Simulated assay, not measured.
Amino acid sequence: MKHNAWLLPLLFLLLSACQKPDEEVMPSPTPTSVIKVEGPDSGKAGEAVLLDVYFVVANGCGQFGSFGTTVQDSATIVAVYPVYIGEVCTLNLPTRKAVYSYTPTTKGKHTLKFWQGTNNYLIKTITVE
């Protein structure tokens, strides 16, 4: 029995050494291309308009990370920033979907420009009453 007494602490040490600390997953600093936007073409001021945004990621580990928005002229520019979680990823270019919530505050036509590449946008116009 004394001969095996050292085995338990050694086993505990080996198993606990294999655990990785939780790492914070940060979105990619580069946006990814939006390929399609689906949703209503009209809405009411002060009420959210929900849009399904489809985008491509670089491999099977890619998931939605965040939306980035800026206002330029009278249009809202929306970019999708993916996150890549995992170490072993498939080498395909899957399409993912995320829901973008846009809440217009004024009546009129609102232009949303979804980033597809440098100076290239998919445009969605929403008429707000």
Rank of each mutant, 00 (worst) to 15 (best):
S42R: 10
R96Q: 15
K124M: 05
S74P: 10
I126T: 07
V99P: 10
Y102D: 08
K124S: 01
A75H: 06
S74C: 09
F12R: 09
M26A: 13
V99Q: 14
V83M: 10
T69R: 09
S28G: 03
T32S: 09
Y102V: 05
L93F: 15
G86I: 04
V57K: 07
A98I: 02
T118W: 11
F55M: 00
V37D: 04
L11R: 02
G62P: 00
Y54H: 13
C89I: 01
Q116I: 03
T76D: 11
L51Q: 15
G117S: 04
V57E: 09
K107M: 14
V88P: 08
R96G: 08
N92W: 06
F67H: 07
T125H: 06
H110V: 08
E87P: 03
D73G: 11
C18I: 08
F64S: 08
K20F: 02
T106D: 15
L14R: 06
T95L: 02
I77C: 04
G43I: 05
K124W: 03
V49A: 04
L11A: 14
T76S: 02
S33E: 12
K113F: 02
D52K: 12
T105S: 15
G65A: 04
T105Y: 01
A79W: 02
T111R: 00
K107G: 13
R96D: 12
V56A: 12
A75L: 07
V56I: 15
L51N: 09
E87Y: 07
P9W: 03
I123R: 11
N92K: 05
P29L: 08
P94R: 01
K107L: 09
T125I: 14
S66T: 14
L7R: 11
V57S: 11
Y102F: 15
D22T: 13
I123C: 05
I85Q: 12
E23L: 10
